[in-house]
Design a protein around this nucleic acid. Sequence first.
DNA 1: GAGTTCACCTGACACTGTCAAGATGCGGGT
DNA 2: ACCCGCATCTTGACAGTGTCAGGTGAACTC
Lengths: 207, 207
Amino acid sequence: MNDTTDMTTYHHGDLPAVLRAATAELVAECGPHGFSLREAARRAGVSHAAPAHHFGSAKGLLTAVATDGFARLEAALAAALRSSDDPLEQFRACGSAYVATALAHPGHYAVMFADELHDSENEALIVAGCGAYDRLLESIGNIRDAFNPELDVETAATMAWSTMAGLVTLAPKLADVADQNDLTYRPIDELIERFTDFFLNGFAGAR
Amino acid sequence: MNDTTDMTTYHHGDLPAVLRAATAELVAECGPHGFSLREAARRAGVSHAAPAHHFGSAKGLLTAVATDGFARLEAALAAALRSSDDPLEQFRACGSAYVATALAHPGHYAVMFADELHDSENEALIVAGCGAYDRLLESIGNIRDAFNPELDVETAATMAWSTMAGLVTLAPKLADVADQNDLTYRPIDELIERFTDFFLNGFAGAR
DNA sequence: GAGTTCACCTGACACTGTCAAGATGCGGGT
DNA sequence: ACCCGCATCTTGACAGTGTCAGGTGAACTC
């Protein structure tokens, strides 16, 4: 019977996958605003209405790309958690993994946190997003268990998540500002390292 | 002689200002993606090509709105700094002021941090952005002077700025997630309060 | 081998941003 | 008083966009 993952080889091979890849590439090049459904179709070598058949609308396609991005992020964070037994080291690895995947897949990342570009109600997207976030909760939960039972994991995770997202999106702008003011420019890797140390420092006394 | 701020009362009164207001309102309603130059012109009661004359392009108009937003933010942060003599209290007030202005002017805020929607090279925008950021530097500089001469003000400001930006943009999404997982939902005001306490806690031992 | 379903195409519509060219009214110089 | 220059805004056109309706053909089912 029909396994949905098997109905691939038709005219084109696997058009949905090709379209998702083309979209990510296009957004990485031209930004979410420069993206165009027709251009994505063009790059995939199909007619302008082909994407709609698989994804319903432009938003649907972008939603699928965002879901892909969260899946990648979850995988990276999961690997970071497995990379060590020390909760502090795990958290540092999560920070590095977050920024690494964001920079490696800028097209995905740009869509993931642009609320109105994707359909926030989409179930697959929500599941993928929560999956990635759960890894961060897991990491901070490990820290709580090992060092500070008073730590409010929810709040700490919210702030860590926000800070990582903010750093990644603001880093280029901050670099520009630093350049123009003759200040020392800190590459984002170093910022993330500082960030994790700073947070781990703060975790000790937080409630 | 021509003072550019005086050439206001013509056919329309002050069309640039009306257009900026209409744009902010429109973005607040429909998001940056739902914004349309022609719709903004429509709301201002002028023809579809009128905005181009004052702002050059859609990006020019959005840049002006972003500049407005940074000016408002700087004013709010400056007021927060004046609100107390205690550096810690100043920092808390900055956090509250940041989120308050972001929520009070969602249209402006959405454009301010959407890198490709405005012209990042625009000088007025850069000046306004740096002006607001400088207030945060000032606040954290006061903390350094009063409590911890080892504190790296640049790095601390980068993280505080990123966290505030991240919190504001992610707050609604995190609220949804919390709702669906039956977790306790923290309103953003409380999150900001926690955030400032957490950072102040971290400042003590940071380098 | 006929019929149904899926995958994709063609064509059309209203909408968008931008440009060129024209109208319209204010201000300053004579 | 007049007129000219110029800033302001309009009109019209162009290419490009997302989405929908309907068509075409391949592939699987029975």
